[in-house]
Simulated assay, not measured.
Amino acid sequence: MSVRNYIPIDVDDLPEQFDYEIDDVDYIFEIKYNEQGDFFTAGIALDDGTWLVRDWKIILNQPLFFNIMDSRLPTTDLTPMDESGQEKKISITNFGDTVFLYEDTVDADSDPSEQIPIDSDEIGDD
C-alpha cells in the first residue's frame, strides 16, 4: 500500500484532462500518450485555463516541471514512481498499475513503515 497520495490516471482514456487540487490551489491537468515514442506527457493550467506548462515528458522518478521557475506551479513535487523500485521506465502497461504520479510528500528522513497508508482501514484500534 502506498504512503503517498497519487493522482489517478486512466491510461485507457487518454488524452485526459481533469481538475486536481494541490497545495490548496485548483489546477487543470492534461495527460497524453505518444504511441510512436511510447511516452507520456503532462500539462498543467490554472483553473482559469491559463496553461503554465504543456507537453512535459513524464520520466520515471523525475519530478514534473522540476526546472521551471514559476511561482504559480505547485510547491509539492509531483513524481512518477514505482514505490517497489522494480520498474525502469513508464509504459502503457505499468502506468496506473505499478507506476503512479505521486504527490511526493514523504519526508526522506522518516521511516515509511511507520506511516499509515492513505487508503488504509487501520484507525489505531486493535
Rank of each mutant, 00 (worst) to 15 (best):
Val11Lys: 03
Leu101Cys: 06
Leu101Asp: 04
Val106Trp: 11
Gln86Trp: 12
Phe100Glu: 05
Gly43Ile: 11
Glu16Asn: 13
Ala42His: 00
Pro117Asp: 04
Trp56Val: 13
Arg72Met: 00
Phe65Arg: 11
Thr76Lys: 00
Ile44Gln: 05
Ile7Gln: 02
Ser71Ala: 13
Val25Lys: 11
Phe40Met: 10
Val99Pro: 07
Ala45Gly: 00
Ile58Cys: 04
Asp119Ala: 08
Asp70Thr: 02
Ile59Lys: 05
Phe100Trp: 07
Lys57Thr: 09
Thr98Gln: 04
Leu14Ala: 07
Lys88Trp: 15
Val99His: 08
Ile68Val: 00
Val106Gly: 03
Pro80Thr: 00
Arg54Thr: 02
Gly85Gln: 02
Asp55Thr: 11
Asp104Gln: 06
Ala45Ser: 01
Asp125Trp: 12
Val99Ile: 14
Thr79Lys: 01
Pro117Cys: 09
Tyr20Glu: 08
Leu14Pro: 11
Asp82Glu: 02
Asp48His: 02
Leu73Met: 00
Lys32Cys: 13
Asp10Pro: 08
Gln86Asp: 10
Ile44Asp: 01
Ile7His: 04
Ile44Cys: 01
Tyr33Cys: 05
Asp47Cys: 14
Asp70Asn: 01
Glu114Val: 03
Ser84Tyr: 15
Val106Ser: 10
Thr105Ile: 12
Ile22Trp: 14
Val106Cys: 10
Glu21His: 09
Glu30Thr: 15
Asp26Gly: 08
Ser113Thr: 09
Ile59Ala: 03
Phe39Met: 05
Glu87Phe: 05
Ala42Arg: 00
Asp13Trp: 12
Asp24His: 03
Glu16Phe: 14
Pro112His: 02
Pro80Cys: 00
Pro117Ile: 11
Phe39Arg: 10
Phe100Met: 11
Ser84Ala: 15
Asp48Ile: 02
Asp48Phe: 03
Phe66Glu: 12
Thr50Pro: 09
Phe95Ile: 08
Trp56Cys: 11
Leu46Tyr: 01
Asp109Phe: 14
Pro74Ser: 00
Phe40Val: 07
Thr93Phe: 13
Val3Ile: 10
Ser110Tyr: 04
Ser120Thr: 02
Pro15His: 07
Ile116Phe: 09
Ser71Met: 11
Lys88Thr: 14
Val99Cys: 09
Ile59His: 03
Ala108Pro: 03
Tyr27Pro: 05
Pro15Met: 07
Glu122Thr: 14
Gly124Ile: 06
Gly49Ala: 07
Met1Lys: 09
Asp97Glu: 05
Phe95Asp: 03
Tyr20His: 13
Pro8Glu: 12
Lys32His: 15
Asn67Gly: 08
Arg72Lys: 04
Asp70Phe: 04
Asp119Leu: 08
Arg54Phe: 02
Asn5His: 13
Asn61Thr: 08
Asp111Tyr: 06
Asp77His: 14
Asp121Lys: 13
Asn34Gly: 08
Ser120Lys: 03
Gln17Trp: 10
Ile90Glu: 01
Pro112Arg: 04
Ile92Ala: 14
Asp77Tyr: 15
Lys89Val: 03
Gly37Asp: 06
Asp48Pro: 03
Gln115Ile: 14
Val25Glu: 09
Ile68His: 00
Ile116His: 09
Asp55His: 11
Tyr20Trp: 13
Tyr33Val: 06
Asp55Val: 08
Glu21Asn: 06
Ile90Asn: 03
Met1Cys: 10
Pro112Tyr: 01
Gln17Glu: 12
Ile22Val: 14
Asn5Gly: 08
Gly49His: 12
Asp111Phe: 08
Pro8Asn: 05
Gln36Tyr: 15
Val106Asn: 06
Gln17Ile: 10
Tyr27Val: 07
